[in-house]
Design a protein around this nucleic acid. Structure first.
Lengths: 205, 205
DNA sequence: GTCTATAGGCAGATAGAC
DNA sequence: GTCTATCTGCCTATAGAC
């Protein structure tokens, strides 16, 4: 009896399920949840739609697997930033760079795209999108608190609210840059955002 | 020989074309360009899909008419803000309030939504989305320059770049608020954005 | 202007052979 | 695991009557 692959690929990469996720992820990030089909994915991989259904029962399950993998990778990237152990300002730089890498590939953040489509999504996907933003918020909140303590960052009010603002500003900068196909446009806004948080360098030393 | 209605309604409101635009606008703003159909619009209006094609030849033409009307109304709102003749800070408040009104209706900015869908749009729609953001940018640029001159607003660098940042931040705040169905979340981010621009009140007078 | 009827295609999905 | 074959339904769009 063949082992059913779980919705996460059995091997880290190269398995068919992983390849499906790779293609579907790119399609959702560029065309949206309602702008891609099983046929698109199947054609690109040279397999049939029926084979896709073996790996992912339906589009909803594929979507859930997409967010799950994307969120895991993103959170792992945040842990890497923490491990690198820089100051709070450099962590924010690295955070914005995660977004920049996405738009340079002419993609939107997966969960930003799904936030646009949210009214058409199965509720499990909507919950997963929220969880993604919540995790980002929590990570940013800690960085912002660290930055305030160490007098590297300045902002008014609660760190959590500032974190929400940062996520929105970065997602929106990506969104508006899309029709221009201009990653520089995103990067200029990201620099501006971070500069409003930076404590001005004193002339001392 | 019957007069063909132009893609803009002949009467200001109430005409079938205008009703079609009303319904389609709401659907695009909540479900995205690929998340609504002629059937959705027809059913809601109690007419047939074929009748829709009389007013708008195809989905692309309907989309163009949607952006055209939306942009005209938005620009008119900006002119109204100018006519009210407040200071630059109050103009920015009013600008953010335009966005807040949209999200309170549980909608996304039409052009923000289309920015997400941009890779699937006819090129005429993509051009119109860009033109919308360009016009917003130009208006904001003038307000920001006014505000700097009158020492009501503070920001670094060029007004045009700051304008781009503001648009992105507001669009993104709307986007991220969507999965939470929480207009307050948008408003908190908008207030935070505007407060970073406000010149601190001196204790004098 | 709105309708009925229909076209032709694509959507997501399933049964069952190999 | 992947295939062929097929289903049902929805999509955009058109022809032509009223």
């Amino acid at each position: 009896m063949a082992t059913m692959p779980t919705s996460t690929a059995r091997r880290a990469n190269g398995g068919t399920a992983a390849k499906i996720l790779d293609v579907a992820e790119r399609l959702v990030q560029s065309r949206g949840y309602n702008g891609f089909s099983y046929a698109d994915v199947a054609e690109e991989l040279g397999i049939t739609k029926a084979s896709l259904h073996y790996h992912f029962a339906g589009k909803a399950e594929l979507g859930e697997a997409l967010i799950k993998r994307y969120a895991e990778r993103f959170i792992n990237s945040l842990r890497e930033i923490d491990k690198d152990g820089g100051n709070a300002a450099s962590k924010l730089d690295a955070y914005a760079e995660l977004y920049a890498g996405v738009i340079r590939k002419r993609r939107m953040c997966l969960c930003g795209m799904l936030a646009a489509d949210v009214d058409t999504l199965p509720s499990a996907l909507r919950d997963a999108v929220r969880a993604f933003f919540d995790e980002n918020e929590t990570w940013l909140e800690h960085v912002l608190e660290q930055g305030k303590q160490e007098r590297e960052l300045r902002y008014e009010g609660r760190a959590r609210d500032q974190a929400q603002f940062i996520i929105g500003a970065l997602e929106g900068a990506m969104l508006v840059a899309r029709p221009y196909r201009d990653a520089d446009r995103f990067e200029a806004s990201a620099r501006r955002l971070l500069s409003t948080l930076a404590v001005p360098q004193t002339a001392s030393r």
